[in-house]
Amino acid sequence: MNDSRFVQSLGLVTLVVFFLASFTPLPNLLNHWAGVPSQLQPAEAIVVLAAGMDAPGVLSNRSLQRMIHGIVLFQRGFAPLLALSGPINRQSGRDEAGVRAEMAHLFGVSPSALVTEATALTTREEAARMAALLRPRGVSNILLVTNYDHMARSRLLFEKVGFSVHPASVDDLSEVRKPEARLRLMRQLAQEFLARGYYGLAGYL
């Protein structure tokens, strides 16, 4: 009977959290608290972090948002180099960084201004591989392009490998109002908090 009461209470708490996450600005406030706003400044390179592909050659929404932001910053003259990250898909043999480079080329970015990295599989690896690629070119000052909620962890990792980082956040969802969008935001935040916890426990941060 006591077990049943415990499970019922857990269910009630879950329902309360569901209503708070869907119908109140709780996720918006959490996102505002966890995210890092942009601090755009001229830099030596713009680094666009990976966000995955939905199908071979098809960038995910998050990947596309980051990429477009990177191209816009490049076209506005914030840096002379555009560094693109994104691993290879074993089944299709296509890599996210390569797909992004083709896209950048279509938008008028010269191939000589592009740097691609297709081996890193985690944010920590992206920081290490980008350091190995960019530091020999004399790059120490970067504009980092990633999502608003992903920026805090990414910035720490890139600073740890010796970069001076200026955040160029995309997709600040602090103002979303639709219940479904708020739930999606809550899920993204839960994933990011779990990742921060894992990175913290593993001593990566």
């Binding site: 049943s4 415990f6 499970v7 019922q8 209470s9 857990l10 269910g11 009630l12 879950t14 329902l15």
Partner: peptide, 13 residues
């Protein structure tokens, strides 16, 4: 309603 809460709690677990 109690049963519904129980099912939701069990789902979470």
């Amino acid at each position: 309603l109690g049963k519904v809460c129980e099912t939701i709690g069990l789902t979470l677990m």
